[in-house]
Structures are given as structure tokens and as C-alpha cells.
Amino acid sequence: MFKSYWVKILIKGEIMGKISLEVNGRKVEKEASDNTLLSTFLREHLQLTGTHIGCDTSQCGACVVHVDGNSLKSCTALAADVNGSKVTTIEGLETNGKMHPMQEAFKKLHGLQCGFCTPGMVMSAVDLLQKNKKPSDTEIRDWLEGNICRCTGYQNIVSAVKEAATKM
């Protein structure tokens, strides 16, 4: 009985539920099967495709979003698990069409190339500065250990985070 319940939820996704979130300041309510990942919910149900899927195993960090103010790898969280939360994605960082200081710093210091890891990298970096206003190089590199970038060699990302720290 118990086993078949989990098979239904996790494998077949047969149990539908209502997911209510506040995403980027907007209340959303959608029906989704209980095995829907938060990343899938954002990308497929809300068409917020800025959140990327790079590995499916919570290793690369391209899918990082903020849930109730903390960074979270959305490819390994069920949407149902964060029901009722406030979610911020890369699409929600701008204010009145003006980029966030972290986005500005990435642009100014060439902290991105192909752009694929960038949304997750930026969201992680913003969370770092929320928790540590003036991180050292080592602290930045340690914090970003969960975000893989194959293009930049990380150096300009580290510089961008330091630059953003002076502007936030």
C-alpha cells in the first residue's frame, strides 16, 4: 500500500495537486503531478526558461533559484515540497527594468560566455552576498563550488562577485 503510493507519486506522477507559489512577486497556482520537479514546474508550467537544467543530479548548479530567500538547486526539489513559498528566478532579479548589481557586474567584468550556467551562478552569488557582505576570494570560490562553469575558468566570475559586493 505504502509502496504503491510512492510508485504513483514518484514514478508515474499520477497524483495531481495544486501548486501555489509566489514567483518573482506574482502569485501563481497550477495543477501539476506530485513528481514535478521545481525546475520543470518553472520551465514547463510557467515558461520561465531562464532556469537551466545541466545535469539532473544536483551537481552543476545551472538550476539554482531562491526559495524563501535561500538558494536552492531546483532540479532536485519537488514543486510540491516548496508549495506556498516565495520563489525568485533569474527573471525576477531586475527591478523596473534595471539589472541587479550582480547582473551588472557580470556584464562589466565578462563573468559569462555561453550564458548557460549564468542564471544559476548569478542566483548563487546573490545569495552569498546576502549572507556575507564582503567575502574574500577564497570564500567566493568555496561558495561557488556547487556551480560548474565550463567557459570562464571562474576568474571573472569571482571578480564580478567582488565588484557586486561594493555596489550592494
Binding site: 520551465r43 520561465l48 526558461t49 531562464g50 532556469t51 537551466h52 537544467i53 528566478t89 533569474i90 527573471e91 532579479l93 531586475e94 539589472m99 547582473q103 557580470f106 556584464k107 562589466k108 565578462h110 559569462l112 550564458g115 548557460f116 549564468t118 542564471p119 548569478v122
Partner: peptide, 19 residues
């Protein structure tokens, strides 16, 4: 020169095949 492509990547408006 700062990159013309950056704004769309930084604001989640890139359009990759999976999108």
C-alpha cells in the same frame, strides 16, 4: 567593449534549444 549578448543571458532571456 562590453558584450551585446550579455543582457539576454543575464536576465534569463537566452533561447537555447531546450527552451
Amino acid at each position: 567593449v562590453e558584450r551585446k549578448e550579455d543582457k539576454r543571458f543575464l536576465t534569463g532571456k537566452g533561447r537555447y534549444t531546450a527552451d
